[in-house]
Design a protein around this nucleic acid. Structure first.
Ligand code: ZN
Ligand code: ZN
Ligand code: ZN
Ligand code: ZN
Lengths: 143, 143
DNA sequence: ATTGAAATTGAGAATCAATCTCATCAATAA
DNA sequence: TTATTGATGAGATTGATTCTCAATTTCAAT
């Protein structure tokens, strides 16, 4: 069993939960993804490749993956929550193109530091943050 | 008629739309708010103070207020979109307490500048952005 | 191998914000 | 007046997400 899978299994077991075949199917599907995805994309890809699994099982599994740090909520748009793998991926923020839907990831250390400063100023204990900049990508500006 | 009201009326008229009594009711309710609100809060406050108005009318009016810059989407949490007045309010970002729901507003010029730099780097034309930091406020940390 | 408590699952129902439908109403222009 | 166009209310609808509950599975202890 790979490291990530162990992380997940250990999380489950230590919380009195079980590493079931269904959760392994979801795990495999998530690992096979690169980039961003939403719950339905995940569900459909599982149905296509591994046969049937209830939509509810996918929705129920997601919080566990988030709790272990394997998956992160990335952005909300088009009425859905979008996720992304976060194991083996550094934290980053997003530029979202309103024209073509393209997502550009970036990370700026200075912005991160300044956020910490802001939190200190307000005695605020930060857990996470999301910075999303909406606009138009290079390609879409020409139209 | 006040300045903001004229801005709104002009926007409507110049778009072939009408400044109806219902839209004025929504306008007044929004102006009377301070702080953040969601569509339902707005709707309920109108019902309480001004009597009946369809929920659909509130939802239909919101995009017009956003288009004129009177209202801005501020953050999404608790499954709803939250808005805030943006006339007479400077741009700012948010710290959201997961414990008590308190929202702290802040603005850091340096962060804003660095965002512009990021956009330049990617030839990205930004329209707006949202930075939301989730965590626990001073009070809630003690529990 | 058997048992039983506790967790999990599937299927569909329920929820909830947000949008849409449509018949009716209001404003304006011809 | 009549036609046109936009606006409204009430409720239906959508679509994502969550919940319900009976049936099944897991797993540790017999
Ligand atoms: Zn684009
Ligand atoms: Zn990303
Ligand atoms: Zn708090
Ligand atoms: Zn604010």
């Amino acid at each position: 069993m790979e490291k990530e899978e162990l992380v997940f299994k250990n999380y489950l077991v230590s919380h009195g939960l079980k590493y079931t075949p269904e959760r392994k199917i979801v795990f495999d599907a998530i690992i096979s993804f690169s980039g961003h995805f939403d719950a339905d994309t995940l569900y459909e890809s599982i149905r296509r490749n591994k046969g049937k699994l209830s939509r509810a099982t996918v929705y129920r599994a997601l919080p566990h993956f988030i709790a272990t740090g394997i998956v992160k909520e990335s952005l909300r748009f088009e009425g859905r929550t979008h996720y992304e793998k976060s194991l083996g991926t550094e934290h980053h923020d997003h530029l979202v193109c309103l024209g073509c839907g393209k997502i550009i990831e970036f990370k700026d250390e200075k912005i991160e530091e300044l956020q910490n400063k802001v939190c200190k100023k307000y005695s605020f204990k930060a857990l996470d943050h999301k910075l999303g900049i909406r606009g138009y990508c290079k390609t879409c500006q020409k139209k």
